[in-house]
Amino acid sequence: MSTTNNKGGGFAVTIALIILAAAIAVFPMFYNFGDPDAEEQFGGSDGAAEEIVAEQNPDYEPWASPLIGELPGEVESGLFAFQAALGAGVLGFAIGNYRGRTRAEERGSRESGAAGTTAAAGPNPGTDA
């Protein structure tokens, strides 16, 4: 006998999460909150930090330098994509490993529970024990 363990509206929750993810992705395309006069409308936090440091301490000199100099935009975006793919792979592995372990524990407890009920029933009637 097959039992399903549906914990209430799984399909509806999945659809709602997909719609929410799509809305989060589409929202910035229609509402431009960046600075239209800036060279880059959405500057990074590094650029903002450099501006604040330059305002507060104009004589500041960085004590560390980048290991690699300026890279072309294609290389930077490629490294970023590689970093994202690597992170997604690690996260997927961890989630899959956790889910597999949980399923194995459930299967083991189900099998030991079935074995426990037959053992608890005692010897078969009609046999000499």
Results as ranks from 00 to 15, higher is better:
Ala94Tyr: 00
Glu40Asn: 13
Phe82Gly: 06
Phe93Tyr: 06
Ala94Ser: 04
Leu20Ser: 08
Pro62Val: 02
Ile24Met: 08
Thr117Arg: 15
Glu74Gly: 10
Gly122Phe: 02
Ala16Gly: 08
Asn5Glu: 13
Leu91Asp: 01
Val90Met: 02
Asn32Glu: 11
Phe30Glu: 01
Trp63Gln: 14
Phe80Gln: 12
Ile18Phe: 07
Tyr60Pro: 03
Arg107Trp: 07
Phe27Gln: 04
Asn32Ile: 04
Arg103Cys: 01
Gly78Pro: 04
Thr117Asn: 12
Pro62Glu: 07
Asn32Trp: 15
Thr102Met: 14
Pro28Arg: 00
Tyr98Trp: 09
Tyr31Arg: 06
Gln41Ser: 09
Glu40Gln: 13
Ala21Arg: 06
Thr127Pro: 04
Gly43His: 11
Met29Cys: 05
Ala25Asn: 09
Tyr98Lys: 13
Leu20Asp: 04
Gly96Glu: 00
Ser65Thr: 15
Ala129Lys: 15
Thr4Arg: 05
Tyr31Met: 03
Ile18Ala: 13
Ile52Gln: 11
Phe33Asn: 15
Pro123Ser: 01
Gly8Gln: 13
Ala12Ile: 15
Ile18Ser: 12
Val13Asn: 12
Gly122Cys: 07
Asp128Pro: 04
Phe33Lys: 08
Met1Asn: 13
Leu71Cys: 04
Gly92Leu: 01
Tyr60His: 06
Gly73Ile: 11
Lys7Met: 13
Arg107Thr: 10
Ala38Ile: 02
Ala129His: 15
Phe27Trp: 14
Gly9Asn: 14
Asn124Glu: 11
Gln83Gly: 06
Ala121Gln: 05
Leu17Lys: 14
Leu17Pro: 08
Gly122Ser: 03
Ser109Arg: 15
Met1His: 15
Tyr98His: 09
Thr118Gly: 09
Ala115Gln: 10
Gly96Arg: 06
Glu111Ile: 11
Trp63Lys: 14
Tyr98Ala: 14
Asp37Lys: 12
Arg103Lys: 14
Asp37Pro: 08
Ile24Asn: 00
Asn5Met: 10
Glu51Gln: 15
Gly78Met: 02
Val90Gln: 02
Ala120Arg: 10
Ile18Gln: 10
Ala120Leu: 11
Val26Gln: 08
Asp37Ser: 09
Ala85Trp: 02
Glu76Gly: 04
Ile19Ser: 00
Pro36Met: 01
Ile95Trp: 01
Ala121Phe: 11
Leu79Cys: 03
Pro36Trp: 03
Asn57Gln: 13
Ala129Tyr: 15
Gly89Leu: 06
Val90Cys: 01
Gly9Gln: 12
Tyr98Leu: 13
Pro36His: 00
Val13Gly: 09
Ala121Gly: 02
Ser112Lys: 10
Leu67Ala: 10
Asp128Cys: 03
Ser2Met: 12
Ala64Glu: 12
Pro58Trp: 05
Gly126Arg: 07
Val53Ser: 07
Ala120Ile: 05
Ala119Thr: 05
Gly69Phe: 00
Ser77Phe: 06
Pro28His: 01
Gly43Lys: 14
Leu79Glu: 03
Ala81His: 01
Gly126Gln: 02
Asp35Leu: 02
Gly89Ala: 05
Val13Tyr: 11
Asp59Phe: 01
Glu74Trp: 07
Gly116Met: 09
Glu50Cys: 08
Ile95Thr: 00
Asp59His: 02
